[in-house]
Design a protein around this nucleic acid. Structure first.
Lengths: 146, 146
DNA sequence: ACAGAATAGTTGGTGACACAAACCAAATTA
DNA sequence: TAATTTGGTTTGTGTCACCAACTATTCTGT
């Protein structure tokens, strides 16, 4: 297990491979986020909100963070007009967080870039190899096969 | 690209798969590190020092961090007796960083745990599938095939 | 119906982590 | 040897994460 992204040893075992790929991907995500001044966590936050509005506690659960961490996160993003806090219609204590148009644009752009980068990563593989990889990943992730 | 670790959609494409796997792996690394109160960065730092002693600037380069960040990182680890600063024999300005026995133990233990966890991740695959995956990863990472 | 408990979110305090700019000491070069 | 470059630390700022304490609602048991 070479702990580094860019240190591909000659005898690469499966653990090394998975760990290195993981670092490579995180690097791509972080760099792409950085182009829009988004941290990894901000990126994930917006990614969640792309699919659904959510209350603070739900966000904390999705992100695996304490609710107080989400307060700061959302506040900073709100300052940048990426999202808004609305009163939840369901519970007067709760806050509903939703993307602004600007936030939505930014997420869409980020997703395009990330998809392109990750796709570039798998470019050295032939189409059937890519299919094989996808199947293996699905199996590892315990995903209902497509 | 579902931005979340634990949201395996039914139609998993290759980008989703890679990104999700990456998050899963980072989760494992972070959790395992946390058992020893090690952040992701500390983990990487110790991982580098496992293979070679290094000077501060080299560490900064490996980690992709500013040198001033490494100062703090190393200082905190030194406080915990995980590593030591020695004068570099090569250059009286430079500092050589090296693991202590304690640090070495901790790295060894961490590596065992991480290898086990990652191996568990690939357990659903048959042996030939694991070999296939390893080969695909090597090809993606541009690694000289084993 | 209403007192007590649980829940949603914020605030304040602490610490790790990362950067940038300013700085010192040793080494290089011109 | 004077000027510059290099290795590292310091200081200051901001993000990010946690915990404990707090307010305001909502829910529960009687």
């Amino acid at each position: 297990m070479t702990a580094q992204p860019g240190s591909p040893g000659p005898g690469l075992d499966i653990v090394d491979g998975i760990v290195q790929l993981s670092f490579r991907v995180q690097e791509i995500l972080a760099e792409t986020g950085a182009e829009h001044d988004l941290s990894m966590t901000q990126l994930r936050l917006l990614g969640i909100l792309r699919d659904r509005d959510a209350e603070m506690l739900q966000l904390a659960a999705y992100l695996g963070l304490d609710k107080s961490s989400v307060t700061g996160l959302v506040t900073r993003a709100e300052r940048r007009d990426l999202l808004r806090r609305l009163p939840s219609p369901r519970d007067r204590r709760a806050t509903l967080v939703t993307l602004t148009a600007h936030g939505r644009d930014l997420v869409a752009d980020g997703e395009r870039r990330i998809r392109a980068q990750i796709a570039a990563l798998t470019a050295p593989l032939t189409a059937p190899q890519q299919d094989a990889l996808t199947a293996l990943l699905a199996q590892i992730l315990g995903t209902p096969a497509p």
